[in-house]
Amino acid sequence: MSQPFNDIQQIEMAIKAAQKMVGAATMSMDPDQLQTATQALEDAKRQLQSAKQHDLDSEFIDYSSTLIEKLEHQVDEAKH
């Protein structure tokens, strides 16, 4: 397996984990869960930024970035 493929898998898994955490946190409105979801999103963003070094498919990068932004907005709305 090549490094870029592994990066894509890692990013997808990080985003899926963040999606689940955001969903649970916004349903419960629990401050601790919202913080955990925020951290999961930060981790996914960090992985995405790191993977950009490997010239990944721009569509994948754009899609992932947009999805993370939407999830961040969802958490921000729940916090306020």
Score class of each variant (00 low, 15 high):
residue 1 M to N: 07
residue 1 M to Q: 06
residue 1 M to F: 02
residue 2 S to R: 05
residue 3 Q to G: 01
residue 4 P to G: 05
residue 5 F to T: 14
residue 5 F to S: 12
residue 6 N to V: 09
residue 6 N to E: 13
residue 6 N to W: 10
residue 7 D to P: 00
residue 9 Q to T: 13
residue 9 Q to F: 13
residue 10 Q to N: 15
residue 10 Q to I: 13
residue 11 I to K: 02
residue 12 E to H: 04
residue 12 E to N: 12
residue 12 E to L: 09
residue 12 E to R: 10
residue 13 M to C: 04
residue 14 A to K: 05
residue 14 A to I: 02
residue 15 I to D: 06
residue 15 I to N: 04
residue 17 A to P: 00
residue 17 A to D: 10
residue 18 A to R: 03
residue 18 A to Y: 05
residue 19 Q to V: 02
residue 20 K to W: 01
residue 22 V to T: 07
residue 22 V to A: 06
residue 22 V to N: 02
residue 22 V to I: 03
residue 24 A to E: 05
residue 25 A to Y: 00
residue 25 A to I: 00
residue 26 T to F: 00
residue 26 T to G: 00
residue 26 T to A: 01
residue 27 M to G: 08
residue 28 S to G: 03
residue 29 M to G: 14
residue 30 D to A: 04
residue 30 D to S: 06
residue 30 D to L: 02
residue 31 P to T: 11
residue 31 P to L: 08
residue 32 D to C: 01
residue 32 D to P: 00
residue 33 Q to Y: 04
residue 33 Q to K: 14
residue 34 L to F: 05
residue 35 Q to A: 09
residue 35 Q to R: 11
residue 35 Q to G: 06
residue 35 Q to E: 12
residue 36 T to M: 11
residue 36 T to S: 13
residue 37 A to I: 07
residue 37 A to R: 08
residue 38 T to P: 01
residue 38 T to K: 13
residue 39 Q to G: 08
residue 40 A to D: 07
residue 40 A to N: 08
residue 40 A to Y: 03
residue 41 L to D: 06
residue 41 L to I: 06
residue 41 L to S: 09
residue 41 L to M: 05
residue 41 L to N: 04
residue 42 E to N: 11
residue 43 D to F: 09
residue 43 D to K: 14
residue 43 D to R: 12
residue 44 A to K: 02
residue 44 A to R: 06
residue 44 A to M: 04
residue 45 K to I: 03
residue 47 Q to N: 13
residue 47 Q to M: 12
residue 47 Q to A: 09
residue 48 L to Y: 03
residue 48 L to P: 02
residue 49 Q to M: 08
residue 50 S to N: 12
residue 51 A to C: 01
residue 51 A to H: 01
residue 52 K to Q: 14
residue 53 Q to S: 12
residue 53 Q to H: 10
residue 53 Q to K: 14
residue 54 H to F: 13
residue 54 H to T: 10
residue 55 D to K: 13
residue 55 D to I: 10
residue 55 D to E: 10
residue 56 L to A: 07
residue 56 L to W: 09
residue 56 L to Y: 08
residue 56 L to M: 12
residue 57 D to P: 10
residue 58 S to W: 07
residue 58 S to P: 06
residue 58 S to L: 08
residue 58 S to K: 13
residue 59 E to A: 15
residue 59 E to D: 15
residue 60 F to I: 12
residue 62 D to N: 12
residue 64 S to G: 05
residue 64 S to H: 03
residue 64 S to K: 03
residue 65 S to A: 14
residue 65 S to E: 12
residue 68 I to C: 00
residue 68 I to D: 00
residue 68 I to Y: 00
residue 68 I to A: 00
residue 70 K to Q: 10
residue 71 L to K: 05
residue 71 L to N: 07
residue 71 L to Q: 08
residue 71 L to H: 05
residue 74 Q to R: 15
residue 74 Q to C: 06
residue 75 V to P: 09
residue 75 V to H: 10
residue 77 E to D: 13
residue 77 E to A: 15
residue 78 A to T: 04
residue 79 K to M: 07
residue 79 K to Y: 01
residue 79 K to I: 05
residue 79 K to A: 06
residue 79 K to V: 09
